[in-house]
Design a protein around this nucleic acid. Sequence first.
DNA 1: TCAGTCATGGCACGTCGTGTCATGACTATC
DNA 2: GATAGTCATGACACGACGTGCCATGACTGA
Lengths: 189, 189
Amino acid sequence: MSRWQPGARERLERAALDLFLEQGFTETTVPQITARAGLTTRTFFRHFADKREVLFAGEEMVPELVARFMAEAPPSLGPMELITEGLAPAVAEIFEGRGLDYLLRRRAAIDAEPALHERELRKFALMSAALERGFRDRGADDLTARLAAEIAVTAVRIAVTRWLDQQGDPDLPATVNQTLAAMRRLTST
Amino acid sequence: MSRWQPGARERLERAALDLFLEQGFTETTVPQITARAGLTTRTFFRHFADKREVLFAGEEMVPELVARFMAEAPPSLGPMELITEGLAPAVAEIFEGRGLDYLLRRRAAIDAEPALHERELRKFALMSAALERGFRDRGADDLTARLAAEIAVTAVRIAVTRWLDQQGDPDLPATVNQTLAAMRRLTST
DNA sequence: TCAGTCATGGCACGTCGTGTCATGACTATC
DNA sequence: GATAGTCATGACACGACGTGCCATGACTGA
């Protein structure tokens, strides 16, 4: 490249999100995205495995973050204690990387397209699997590990929804804790 | 048709599942499926919206079943009571339609292919949305309805996994109740 | 200067999924 | 029975997706 430009990935992500919101996901073709980004179709698929992945870049690392977070937590904590005490800050680290504005636009695109919604569900499933492994490594039995992991991601998923609904206020850790509290209240009914 | 044959859908479903297990989902082409079923490619896409749907036929009705089930339940029951008392039998009605053998083979195919796993997650998301609507119609506030719905489907998802792991014994309602009990025990820790 | 590496372009190709029209079997009605 | 309507299927063309392969040009290090 003769002159420097913002990285190809960023340009593709921006162009894709804009087009998805303008025209819809299905109506947007990969050549349209790459034309707007000043690249070719072949290059798009070198950066993203498929058309949806352009909205999910960099999320491969979430399982690793989760694994590290759990390995570093005090071994004395039981699964539920770990969730109620450690989940909120860890989640903030994962989800607050990009600006709220980007996240809201991204969610609008995802909500409008079942295929993207499915991909979002897979993201949380991967997070759950990482949590489950973590709990098992900390000595939990299989069922407890699975339950704790699913409860944790459920709380996170609901909290993220509410947090975005409220335009980011209160902040994500607080919303996670509120959601967890409401969950405990409900299940003890 | 001059001679009667098992319905086209059934033949396609059987052929597809067999091929997915023999060769994998990606390696199986739609023409291969239709050739084995004695039909043409165009006919496949008249019966199923895409290649994955051949393993998810008839599940559009689940939201309706859920809606009916909730409308018929005594209005006095709170969300959590409704889950602990009504979920198990309702789930059995939904999931025990086909033989255990089919369900186990189907799960093997789904577990081997992320794209199919995503579709499975969407099925549960639709169930959750139907439950959420039902809880709201029964007077629950938004957060409670969402939480109760997600808790219910989480329990169902885990119960189905365990039930299949155990080759169907104990039966699904019992497994759902065990799972719910374990969940309450864990969250009250 | 030369070799190696890396991102990109360009092209061919197989598969997916849809629109459209034609055909043939069954059904109802007269 | 003859006729018209409905329904499932076949056949074909086509656009979009995603991949394999090779060429090119920029940067890097000896």
